[in-house]
Design a protein around this nucleic acid. Structure first.
Lengths: 100, 100
DNA sequence: TTTACATATCTAAAAATATAGATATGTAGA
DNA sequence: TCTACATATCTATATTTTTAGATATGTAAA
């Protein structure tokens, strides 16, 4: 868990939005076709649609968020689902609380 | 209080260090000459010395931190002192807690 | 085993950030 | 009012980030 690396992720409104949306996928995304839950998160395509940015940009964003351990990917067939990594997010908040 | 703007400040190790040092000036900086306390913070020169970066870089950093309302400047004679803006820092932490 | 689709990676251009040297400004003291 | 000093701003360059189009990869279905 690296404060500077995670702060870099949060230094962009779209990435902050993605993290917020992933808190409550039911409210922010349409239902998936193959699976009827969001236990493994949300597929890249839905996130892309919601942001309006290009597919490659969103893939890059999600990759940086994954590198910072803020999200966890799961492959399901053709789709990659991303969900929040609550442990790391909480650890970051606690570390900030302590350090800042 | 803007999450993205403040996160940009925190996306650099030196700036995070400055905020941490300012939490406890007595432990991190030599005593000032004209004043015998740190109630208004620490002068730019001391911060510069501690980081080893150039004067203009530190001035730029402090300016960005001030724009984000993370620090408060006070002019005392030739010196500008910077101290933490605890209200905004706490507001940021609380907002993150809620939003993130 | 080809095709279609979802996502990742590569490439490249534009914008932002980091950083320092030079210069300007403001203040205190001679 | 000179001079020295602390800090801010300007200018310029290097690096990083943002972003998208093109291409590659992996998977499912025909």
């Amino acid at each position: 868990m690296n404060i500077v690396e995670i702060s870099k992720v949060l230094a962009n409104q779209t990435r902050v939005n993605i993290l917020r949306w992933l808190k409550n996928p039911e409210a922010n995304f349409p239902p998936h076709q193959e699976i009827d839950h969001f236990d493994d998160g949300v597929c890249v395509g839905f996130i892309q649609d919601k942001t309006g940015l290009s597919q490659s940009t969103i893939s890059t964003y999600l990759n940086s968020m994954q590198n910072a351990n803020l999200v966890i990917p799961s492959r399901h067939g053709k789709w990659t689902y991303y969900r929040r990594n609550e442990e790391v997010i909480q650890a970051y908040l606690q570390e900030l609380q302590k350090e800042l």
